[in-house]
Design a protein around this nucleic acid. Structure first.
Lengths: 203, 203
DNA sequence: ATGTAGATTAACCAATTGGTCAAATTTAAA
DNA sequence: TTTAAATTTGACCAATTGGTTAATCTACAT
């Protein structure tokens, strides 16, 4: 029953994703996942032997999904400024659809840094940054960006995009008091962030 | 035994802070806290009746500590540019000494947003932002900052400062592959961030 | 010295949790 | 139809966990 098996295994995986995103590894209960999937708890262990294994599968999927979202900018045939605008529009849009991903990932990685080590190991950041540096040599020259400040710039862009979601709980509290809706704020942020960064690197 | 009592209660509080920062509310074990404090587990419940109450005390202390760190910029008699430089230098220095605070706070707030609601309630953000806006009216005029974009700017500054610590687990993995030390990176970031933001708002 | 109130402990408890197992059910091949 | 393998389940288990309790200890006022 390959069809049915696939169905059950997927059902479990989706339920686990939901619960782990909501409660984290420590807070999640196998019984909750079973309920969410509408199956018996023993069946969880039949497909994924332990909680750790199940969590690892979910974590890896989410981590890959997020890391992948940082890459495609490289392949687009755009000017640097266009790439920056493209990045914020795409990345924030993605996070609007998956607002709990950042908090989940950051927390679990801080709790167990070794979890992401192997995923990071497969990415050649030196080559990645060299590539983007080559791609925009003349532009980086016009702007005041050196190979040394490139990581600072990249992390700043990630921060500007990701942080509001990681801090959603606090930010909603703050914005609420100023009568601003979180979603409106993030919608507005797509353009603000792009202009902000472009202005920051232009000289 | 007021002296001894104070000592024990403090010992418990410090041990709890340590363990909660390390493991979070869900991951922390009362027994771990007792061991860390070098006392019997029952004594924890003698001073703080439940895990929830103990955690609340620790959480409130940490949250207040962090929120307080965003405020003093307002009172300094500095130009806007000087304030921005002051903020990043002070704030990043503070986080360098307390690198686990951001991850802890963000995670716990996302898990239980109501926890920070009452603390946020006591802060008048409208007044706060109006005050800083009044303080630097002519400068905001020179820069391209309106009342509407002020929250975007503030959140961006917080993001640039806080995010690297919240993402420390990942960031160390990335920087390690490029042979950059996290502490060096953050040291360099104090100036980079200031120049970055100042350039971004200058027209 | 002695009684008393608060501080501290060891032992214990009920509930929860991740995990197991043998039995029952379903599925697909022979 | 039979049968063997795979899937699903309810009942169960041992370990862990937050919390309690009754007894002991300590310091101090009388």
């Amino acid at each position: 029953m390959t069809e049915n098996e696939k169905l059950t295994e997927d059902k479990i995986f989706e339920a686990a994703t939901e619960v782990f995103l909501e409660k984290g590894m420590d807070g999640a209960r196998m019984q909750d996942i079973a309920n969410q999937a509408g199956i018996n708890k023993a069946l969880l262990h039949y497909y994924y032997r332990t909680k750790e294994k199940l969590f690892s599968a979910v974590f890896e999927m989410i981590a890959k999904q997020i890391l992948k979202k940082f890459a495609p900018v490289l392949d687009e045939n755009l000017s640097l400024e266009e790439k920056i605008r493209f990045f914020f529009k795409e990345h924030i849009s993605f996070l609007q659809k998956n607002p709990r991903l950042p908090g989940f990932l950051l927390n679990e990685v801080n709790r167990h840094p070794e979890r992401i080590k192997k995923l990071l190991a497969s990415i050649d950041f030196d080559g990645l940054w060299l590539k983007i540096y080559e791609q925009h040599k003349q532009e980086f020259d016009r702007y005041n960006i050196t190979q040394a400040t490139l990581p600072q710039l990249m992390i700043s862009m990630a921060a500007i995009s990701v942080f509001p979601f990681a801090a959603k709980g606090i930010l909603e509290g703050i914005l609420g008091k100023v009568n601003v809706d979180f979603n409106d704020f993030m919608e507005e942020r797509k353009e603000f962030a792009a202009e902000f960064v472009i202005k920051a690197i232009t000289r």
